[in-house]
Design a protein around this nucleic acid. Sequence first.
DNA 1: CTCTCCTATTGGTACAGACCAATTATGAAT
DNA 2: ATTCATAATTGGTCTGTACCAATAGGAGAG
Lengths: 244, 244
Amino acid sequence: MTSLLLYMQVAEALAEGIEQGLLAPGDRLSSERALAEEYGVNRRTVRQALDVLTRRGQVERVRGSGTFVSQPRLERGASEFFHFTERLRERGYETGAKIMALERVVSSRKVAEDLDLVSGAEILRFHRLRTINSSPIVIETFSVAAVLVPGIEDHDLSIRSFYEVLQTEYGIEMERSRQSLEAVVLSELEAQWLQTEPGAPGMLERRLSFDRDGRPVESGTDLYRGDRVRFNTEAATISVAPSL
Amino acid sequence: MTSLLLYMQVAEALAEGIEQGLLAPGDRLSSERALAEEYGVNRRTVRQALDVLTRRGQVERVRGSGTFVSQPRLERGASEFFHFTERLRERGYETGAKIMALERVVSSRKVAEDLDLVSGAEILRFHRLRTINSSPIVIETFSVAAVLVPGIEDHDLSIRSFYEVLQTEYGIEMERSRQSLEAVVLSELEAQWLQTEPGAPGMLERRLSFDRDGRPVESGTDLYRGDRVRFNTEAATISVAPSL
DNA sequence: CTCTCCTATTGGTACAGACCAATTATGAAT
DNA sequence: ATTCATAATTGGTCTGTACCAATAGGAGAG
């Protein structure tokens, strides 16, 4: 059904071109000014149409360069938590990681609660940016009590898994993780790190991870570009009961 | 860190007012025109700020009425698939459902493949809108081969669970479901049904459900207002291996 | 007290211009 | 062929106006 709204008509016309393969991933669209002329509408109207496509993850805009058709989404099992980047590497993607920040802070009440720490305990919090084929895809944050990991700064967490370091260097074997997943919009700084725009969609996964003894050891988040990743899960039912 | 962008400054100022409790869920913000005057900026700039807050799920705009602080998000286990609305009812929410459409169509290649049907098989596809406290929250779509469910139109699926009907009326006991989860933006029609705006964030869950014999029986989607629902999951690890 | 109609207010669409910031292309000099 | 500076092109921000569509409020009539 054709929209009555001009900007949606433009958006759908462009989307159709992409979906029909007239434009392939990586191709550049005509400029905003050219599209405005081509469709006989205002540049603002074109920008609004492109806003929609951008949020759908169908196109990406680069200031000074242009608007490009997006690469297909990556897929991640919702519980495929510890080995996501390995799986991608196995599939031929080039993965990278960069430690953006390392903070040593006094734990907030929330984190102390989560990690079963005394109030005021010292926390190490890492921020790591992961890339796929040189494109930033996820900002990882992980926090751990400093007393558990003396000297961890000396290990290169841009090339080693945090959990592997916990295991081999500190004898801490992670076993379970509890997560939540929600759609969010990226802040300005997050958007900058992920090379997208403020307000772009993100998928925020919060997690609390436990070792073999059931002790909470790590609290953290993964913030994905929402237009780049799709999550999968498989659930088993126990019984079917009336729901309404 | 304060943004340099005017519209982000306005957005953050408003967000702070909400987060500090100066405005409670359900409260109405000043009008766009009043905010423009108050902050000394253009109305367009205020609208851009409110765009950000709307996509974050912090506010909701109603044409002709105003802009309101949103209610807190509902939470749903990622695998809490069959009993979500029951859980909400148990927690005191008033839930509702409305059949928006029932289509009898020839199956597409994709659906035929998914459901293990011969090409051209007849499919029944239901569209149901679920509400929480009278607010639309999710658009459910479920498809099933017509031959499996003769006369199903006579059952009121706005008050009965689809799976319960399958079980009690047709002896089909659902047991497993495979799902994917992704951030999307709502189309115009979807936004209309969910009483939000085109381009608003959505969480799209696609699923394929199997009966006890492992036969695919139902294919469908749940499209949530992305600003209203957070998903939870808990995953168990098997081993920790180097990831990079 | 209720209903209807009209006006005002609200958010939404579309247009238009000016300017900024980032990137790319081009031409000249070496 | 390379490098550097400048101009052009690109998307992004901010302003402003006009009008549309939906809702709310108020006044008057019954």
